[in-house]
Each structure stands twice: as C-alpha cells, then as structure tokens.
C-alpha cells in the first residue's frame, strides 16, 4: 500500500465511523431533606428509595426502558430497577417492593460478581457512603436514565436551623425527555419519599 492509498483509506475509515454509543445525557439534581426515609442503615435508605422509585415509575415508563439496537426502545413489562450500592460494584434487578433485609440478602448473594447484564430498568446508584457530594454522569446505550443518591450535607433550612440534605441526581436521555419532565419526576419522587412510609 503506497502513501496515497493509505491516506485515502484512513480518511474513508474516519468518515465512515459513527459516533460511539454515547447517549446525549443531561442531569438534574435535587436536595432532599433527611427524614424518616433516611433513618437507619444505608441499605435501609436505599431500599426505601428503590421502593419509592418503583411506585412512581409507572407514570414515566420511558425511564425504565432500554435501547435495543440503534435508537429503538424496549420497555419492561413491569416497572423495574437496577440497584448498585457501594458505587455500583454489584448490580441486581428487582421489580417488586423489597424490605432492606431482603435487598441486603439479594445483594450479598454474589458479592464478587459484577451482576447481570443490565437491560430494562432504571438504574439506582448509591454514592452516599462514599462521601461524594456531586455527580455528573454520561449514559451509554442501552442506558436511558440513572438515579444517583449522593452524600448528605448540612445546610440552613427555611427556619434558619441546620438541616441535613441528601443529593438526588437524575441523568436522563435528552432525546426522550426534557428537563421539565425530569424535574417533575424528581418532585413526585421526593414528595413520596417524604410523605409516604416505606418499609
């Protein structure tokens, strides 16, 4: 192959290449005051968050979908979540509300494994125990959205007293959802966490 052939081949290859499976993702973050939902162990808190997401995912089923090939979506039959405590070392899927003991048992069943291949279901990543206070995430196909729980911080409340707040981030695909809908979903999720009582 001579010089000219090589240059031509290289340029053709470069032009033919498609963008990687990156999803044009955006994030919204919300501060959630600590309360009954955050009491107890970290796993309890995570279980309550998962249950609240499962309760509210029915209205925004696109968040629980997954890409199936190029720009084709596959929806889950029932709302489901993928849970990754400890920053996503282990991932497990479930679609029925669980108590934290059940969740703990499920997650510790294969502690060294990377979990199953993630398809349909909203990802919930717990970074609160790693003291991470902010997160900006990119999504890769087949992911469509991801919820991240961040470490708590102290902030002055409306009355001026110090109050503990957790950060909650939603990464979402901009092609499927706009920021207004994402914020509305986060509001509904936050309200149900603060008002409802989850096991």
């Amino acid at each position: 192959m001579n010089f000219l052939q090589r240059v031509t081949k290289n340029s053709k290859r470069i032009m033919r290449m498609k963008p990687a499976a990156m999803v044009p993702s955006a994030s919204v973050r919300k501060l959630l005051p600590a309360g009954k939902w955050s009491e107890g162990k970290a796993m309890e808190r995570l279980a309550r968050l998962c249950n609240a997401v499962l309760d509210n995912l029915g209205d925004q089923q696109v968040l629980g979908a997954a890409y199936d090939g190029h720009k084709a979506l596959k929806f889950a039959k029932n709302p489901a979540v993928w849970v990754g405590p400890d920053g996503g070392k282990t991932w497990r899927r479930f679609s029925a509300p669980l108590e934290y003991l059940q969740l703990e048992a499920m997650l510790t069943a294969s502690p060294t494994g990377l979990g199953d291949v993630r398809d349909q279901g909203l990802e919930i990543l717990d970074l609160s125990e790693l003291e991470i206070c902010d997160w900006k995430g990119g999504l890769v196909s087949p992911q469509v959205a991801r919820i991240v729980l961040l470490a708590p911080s102290w902030r002055p409340s409306a009355s001026g007293d110090p109050e503990k707040y957790f950060g909650l981030v939603l990464d979402f695909d901009q092609r499927l959802m706009d920021a207004k809908t994402a914020v509305a979903f986060m509001d509904v999720l936050a309200n149900s966490l603060l008002e409802e009582t989850y096991a």
Partner: peptide, 14 residues
C-alpha cells in the same frame, strides 16, 4: 472527530 469522544462520569467532593 465524534469517535474520539467517550463516555465520562464525574465524582465531586469538597
């Protein structure tokens, strides 16, 4: 080029 981009995430601390 587009293919040079790759997905990156970010963790932040104070």
């Amino acid at each position: 080029q587009h293919y040079m981009w790759y997905p990156n995430c970010c963790v932040q601390k104070n």
